[in-house]
Design a protein around this nucleic acid. Structure first.
Lengths: 123, 123
DNA sequence: GACCCCCCTTACAAAAAGGTAAGTACCGCA
DNA sequence: TGCGGTACTTACCTTTTTGTAAGGGGGGTC
């Protein structure tokens, strides 16, 4: 099981928000989904360098449970599943924007390594 | 050892920022330090319900290394150490504000449990 | 018919994070 | 001398998180 006992007592809002985005790939999933609108499982997988299928599924399920991600399953012959952000997912992403800006400045300031996923080259 | 190999390649700013605040008590430490300006070790400990000395020291050291927290040691007979936010710590806190608001709304929206640390009762 | 793709699931294992308890060194108080 | 308070450090252990490898059911391709 992944993380059943969420909803633990929170001390402040940051605590409650961090609980939802903490996870190695959650921030990136949010980012991908925000950038592309709708994404299929395999697309997401390709957009997140190094993620395993297990982790991706797990994170996606948790985010769905947390009401951030919408999962649309098409009962087609080659199974098709589309993921997108819910309204809460969008507002979270907006709330995350200043943090992202701060982080970008940090990487610049400290000369940290940043990899480019080259999402634009296939999307 | 706590976390030496930070500075890993980041995909986006959120990634880089999350790396710095991920940790069970980091958000709270930022919050405490922002609310009180300057805080001693034991004060911080009392303000963070359930934190162990080890974790507090460890998180504080990491945050110091990340340039978020300033540590001032007074060479006095009963050792005195004061912690405060650096400028980067302050800007991070400001960047965290919308996230905190989002989290607060989430706790309200979903009726999640929130504990009150009652910091005001002793400060 | 073997292989690949789709979207997962399961079992197992490693790594990381966190927690517990004790020890350090010094002081004031009783 | 024993206890409480200051700010940690260290060793050990548990829990949580992440990773690896494999399987599964169906269809199209070579």
């Amino acid at each position: 099981m992944a993380k059943a006992p969420r909803c633990g007592p929170y001390i402040c809002g940051i605590d409650a928000a961090l609980d939802v985005v903490s996870g190695k790939w959650k921030g990136l999933i949010l980012w991908e989904l925000d950038a592309h609108g709708v994404r299929r499982f395999a697309e997401l997988r390709r957009g997140l360098p190094g993620v395993s299928e297990k982790m991706l599924t797990q994170h996606l399920r948790e985010m769905e449970k947390d009401g951030l991600v919408h999962r649309e399953v098409y009962a087609e012959v080659p199974p098709r599943v589309e993921y997108s952000l819910t309204e809460h997912g969008h507002t979270l992403n907006q709330a995350l924007a200043p943090l992202g800006a701060w982080g970008s400045e940090r990487t610049r300031r400290e000369g940290l390594e940043v990899v480019d996923v080259a999402e634009t080259s296939h999307g």
